[in-house]
Amino acid sequence: MNFEEMKTKIATGEGFIAALDQSGGSTPKALRGYGVGDDEWSGDDEMFARIHEMRSRVITSPCFGNGKVIGAILFEKTMDGEVDGKTTADALKARGVVPFIKVDQGLADEQDGAQMMKPLDKLPALLEKSVNAGMFGTKMRSVIKSANPKGIADVVAQQFEVGNQICDAGLVPILEPEYDITADDRAEGEKILLDELMKGLNALPEGRQVMLKLSIPVEPGLYTPAIEHPNVLRVVALSGGFSTDDACEHLAKNPGMIASFSRGLLQDLRKDLSDEEFDAALGKAIDQIAAASN
């Protein structure tokens, strides 16, 4: 797939985007969930080798290429690795899956009820490498923890500022201002978030498109204005800690949003499953998430 083919797939494809981008501190937890104990690896290299084994097994599973997964978000080391003797990006494209790369460098300390991204000092080099690797887009995460207008505005402003740098490099950014689903004031804060997102979208040059990755809103359909905005290629939903069943139930109430789940996709996979059992568990999750997305 070339860039325009990938763009069409993301804009119009029926299915969802898999989030395979656990990194740093979240990797041991992901491995434990898969059945790999902390005593089964030593040091970052072994840790990332084990998580790459898991991701490779997911990507090469027959059901992953059945057309219901239209995109996948990768961690940098996954992009740098190989699957079936091909670069990970090429292996995904061969299965009809559009590759994205996680570009943020983690979260700063909470301020004004939000955690912005740490300075992205490695971004220019990573964008150049990602373009050369044939990636389509990027993803970067901030977290909102309360309905503090300043904190929300600061998070969104940073997302759009970096997003414009990514567009300039020739990639499509997924802006992810996640709203903590445990926040008591989430319904109020999500309305503030929508207002800030619309300001940012309206300020983009004509023809410049971004994607949005958002927590499934308390109020169904809240993000319809963003979904319909001409500067938005697609709006995807994160599972945010919901189980697969709960995330799919909430997502199905929001037409126009498709899933970009991590835990919701991988929660029932274990390393000791046979290939048949592994494919059955993954296929069940893929079918459920795709149905909720469509």
Rank of each mutant, 00 (worst) to 15 (best):
L194Y: 10
A108G: 13
K213R: 11
Q115G: 01
E4C: 00
M47Q: 14
M117R: 13
M140I: 03
V69I: 05
A291G: 00
E277D: 15
A18K: 03
N66D: 15
M1C: 04
A125D: 14
I101F: 04
G24W: 14
G96P: 02
M6C: 13
I181S: 06
K145I: 04
I152K: 11
V235M: 05
Q158Y: 06
G81K: 07
A30H: 11
N2P: 03
E196P: 14
R270D: 11
E178K: 14
T78K: 05
S243G: 04
S61M: 06
Q267S: 13
A125W: 11
V98C: 07
G81M: 08
L92H: 00
A94E: 13
N231R: 08
E5L: 05
V58C: 07
F64C: 00
D246L: 09
E4S: 13
K129E: 06
H52E: 14
A290W: 00
K284Y: 01
G200N: 07
L126T: 14
D90R: 03
S215E: 12
C167V: 15
E161K: 15
D168M: 04
E46I: 14
A291R: 02
A72M: 05
V83K: 03
L212F: 09
K7E: 14
A237H: 09
D279R: 01
G13E: 02
D112Y: 14
L107D: 06
I17F: 07
D275M: 02
T88Q: 10
L238R: 04
L214S: 12
D168V: 04
L233S: 10
V156Q: 07
G96E: 01
A72C: 11
N231K: 08
F160W: 11
Q288P: 00
F261V: 05
P99F: 01
G163K: 12
E4F: 09
G283K: 01
V69T: 03
E46D: 15
K118Q: 13
D268Y: 11
M116K: 15
A226M: 10
G35V: 10
V235I: 04
E219P: 12
S26V: 08
R141A: 08
K271W: 07
A169Q: 10
G200P: 05
G25I: 11
D268W: 06
M1G: 04
N231E: 13
D275Q: 08
V172L: 14
